[in-house]
Amino acid sequence: MLKHVFATLVSGSLILGAAAAQAQEAITGAGATFPYPVYSQWADAYQDKSGVGLNYQAIGSGGGIQQITAKTVTFGASDAPMTKEELDKNGLLQWPMVMGGVVAAFHVDGIDGAINLDGKTLADIYQGKISRWNDEAIAKLNPDMELPDTKITPVYRAEGSGTNFLFTHYLSQVSQDFANTVGEGKSVAWPAGVGAKANAGVASQIANTNGAIGYVEFAYAAQNDLHLVHLKNKAGKTVAPDMDSFMAAAANADWKNAPGMYLVLTNQPGDNSWPITGASFILMHKQVQNVDAARQALEFFDWAYSNGDKMAKELDYVPMPKNVADMVRESWSEIKGPNGEAVWKQ
C-alpha cells in the first residue's frame, strides 16, 4: 500500500517536473513592484491565450535596471525613467507600459470627507514648517471647514520606492525650497515625520494616528477607503484623485518630444489633471542575442497594449492611450538581432 502511494507520488512529481520544464518557455523580466499586480494579471490572461508564460520578479526598480544591464533578463521594469544619456550608455530602449497615481491620505478626528491642499502647502507640511492642522495656509484653502488644533504627523515610505520618487518629484517642482533642502529620489532624508514600511505600513500608520497625513498608490487607497486630499493642480484647479483626473494628466503628456521617452507625469497642465501621476517603464536592450526571447516579450507587450486596458482599470491602473502605444510599437524597430534585422515586425 505504502509502496503504491510512493510510486504514485514519484510519477506525479515527474509529470509535474516535466510540465515545469515545458513552462520554462517563459518571458523573463524583473523590476518595479508598483506595476506587479497588473503585469501578473496580464500574464495570466496571455498565458491562457498563447501558452507563453511570464516570469516576472518584483525586486524593485533599482534591481530591474541592474538585471537588464547585466542581461540576465529579457526586459527590466522601472518606476523611475532612465535619462536619454543613461539609456544610450547601456544600449537600452525604454517605453511606458502602464500609469498610476499617487494620492495623499489623511486622518484627523473631526474632519470627514476630503480636504483641499496645494503643492506648496504639502511641501511645507513634509518639511515640518506647517505643524498644525489649523495653520493659516490650510485654513485659507478650506474656508468653510472647522479645522482642529491637531498636530500634523507626516508619514512617508521608509524604503526606496517609485512612489517616493513620484511624490518627491512633484514636491520638488512646486516648492523650490523642498527641491533645495530635500530633493527628489527613491530614498530621501525627510526632515519631519514618521517612516513606515510599504503602502500597507503607511496606511496603517495613518489610520492609527490622529493628525497623520501620508501618500500611497491610488490602487491601495481605493481598496482601503482612506480619506483623500484634493490637490490644486498646475492650472490652479482643485481636483479629486480618480481615474478621470489620472487620464487627464496622461492625455496632456507630450511623449513625442520626450527624448528616450523620459517623462515624469507630475504637475501636468490641464484643468482636470491630477498632479502626481506617473508611468511605469519597460527597458530592453537594442542589440539582443536571443531573438526569440525578445520577440516573445514584444508580442506580450503588444497584446497587453491592445487587450489589457480593462484589466488595468479594474486594478485602478491607468492604461496607456492608443496613440502612445502606437508610438511605442514604432520605437520597437530599434531592437535588432545579431544579424542587424529588426526583431519586431508589425
Binding site: 524593485g60 535596471i65 521608509a158 526606496g160
Partner: peptide, 15 residues
C-alpha cells in the same frame, strides 16, 4: 533609524 533597519529599507533599491 538603526543600521539594520536602514540597510533593510534601502538595500534592494540601491546601486
Amino acid at each position: 533609524t538603526s543600521i539594520a533597519a536602514l540597510i533593510a529599507n534601502q538595500f534592494s533599491e540601491s546601486d
